[in-house]
Write a protein that binds this DNA or RNA. Structure first.
Lengths: 248, 248
DNA sequence: CGGGTATTTGACGACTGTCAACGCCAGTGG
DNA sequence: CCACTGGCGTTGACAGTCGTCAAATACCCG
């Protein structure tokens, strides 16, 4: 059973932290940034392993992740957890269209994180005022849907080794694409525990460990503390069947 | 490897067939139905096993499925196919937000089908003219996303038996919810081959067969021709961990 | 009746899960 | 400064699910 489930706590408000331009930009086109600024909440800090929202909680708020990593997941009646997405800075979480009462997944902080909240209603008002904001959000949703489909392909049809290679290759690509690491970097931060990797890939922690060890022995990965070195990103992507797509 | 891949063929135009009110309603709120009618194409008929659109084809058209079942899937470099969704009459297929160049999945007709096409551009124009049409489509997308997440939970964490039970329970629920079968029905049409069931559940055809056979021997399913009898829908749903949700 | 498609069955093996234990490391408190 | 503790990673032995290969049977449509 899961070890990193901690009770939900209120995020604690914090002084505004420096915002990366591209983080907010992911959600709100620059032309609406003033309207958006007036509608957003203050920034909130949440400690690692804390839950931002739970499965089935009312769909009141959506969030932009400013700093840190989060894990989005669902779990079934028996308590098995399936990871849906690793959220990186700039990601948009928890949005639901008007009329939705509850959210279907949960979000837990992998590292300490900073998020910024929008009331769903405020977003919906903005969307009717600015039709192309609606388009923009639809585009984000479509992008998540595509990544969701890639993920389903992996869960249904790929080997454990391929799934893990895919996960790492995808994270590496997204970090570079968003300039969270240099475009010529060969290492990346990697705060996920092996259990979380297992959650994402549909594997048990034990098997995850064996496979990651195999990838290491094959020279495809190198692990140092909370970082990962990727000697040959192309080989990794090709093993996992990862094909980079532009907006990520 | 897959056996039901057939080359894409142009759908053949056909005389308008009777449209179920609720089918079009899934896509276009009744208030815009006139605008929608003026922008849609004629109806097209497509024979079973024909491909409506392929992975990577340009995102020109979206479709409403009027009659018949379709299977949406993705496949990887090695030709493994993973089913994403079974589309039933009333479903909206192939929509992509403005700026998307290609579609990431493919759609094949399970039975003979009738679809109605919209040019993506036309939809985008309508969405800017009628902001709540945008909302409506966003809502459909969110619903598909939720079902996608249920599916991921199954692929990653459920046994073969549970996945198949879930699939059948979900289809049964959707058919009833859309009044495509009576609400007290205990049988349903079931045109999917076992191979297609395997595609949806991430199993091989052989293993799919064994598990369906087991479900039969347990009295949870009964197969007649192209129909399925479900003696105890609650038992099936509970085995598969299926929880009905209202909009389906 | 014939040919192709779908289902069924058996034998076998690989991949992955389960259970249990141990080691490592960082933070904590004495 | 050091022992303690809890979380995480690692390893071994074993079992079970599921995939693979191959072939036989059943079914549908012309």
């Amino acid at each position: 059973m899961s070890r990193y489930l901690t009770p939900r706590t209120q995020p604690t408000q914090c002084a505004a932290c420096p915002v990366r331009q591209n983080a907010l930009f992911q959600v709100v086109p620059l032309s609406y940034i003033e309207d958006a600024q007036s509608r957003r909440t203050d920034q909130y800090r949440l400690a690692a392993r804390r839950v931002l929202y739970e499965e089935g909680s009312p769909a009141e708020m959506a969030f932009t992740l400013f700093q840190g990593w989060m894990l989005l997941y669902r779990s079934d009646a028996e308590g098995h957890r399936q990871g849906l997405r690793v959220a990186l800075p700039g990601d948009f979480l928890g949005y639901m269209p008007p009329g939705s009462s509850h959210i279907h997944h949960a979000a837990v902080a992998v590292t300490d994180v900073v998020v910024c909240g929008f009331r769903q209603e405020g977003l919906h008002e903005m969307m009717t005022k600015h039709p192309d904001l609606a388009t923009h959000i639809t585009r984000i949703q479509a992008r998540y849907m595509a990544s969701c489909q890639n993920h389903m392909l992996g869960l249904g049809r790929k080997s454990a080794e391929q799934r893990i290679a895919y996960l790492v290759a995808e994270l590496f690509h997204r970090l570079r694409y968003r300039r969270l690491i240099a475009s010529d970097a060969t290492t990346m931060p990697f705060p996920l525990t092996q259990e979380m990797v297992g959650d994402m890939t549909g594997l048990t922690p034990v098997h995850t460990n064996r496979v990651m060890r195999k990838l290491r022995s094959e020279g495809l990965l190198r692990v140092e503390r909370t970082r990962l070195e990727i000697p040959d990103a192309d080989a990794l992507a090709s093993l996992g069947g990862f094909v980079p797509e532009e907006p990520a």
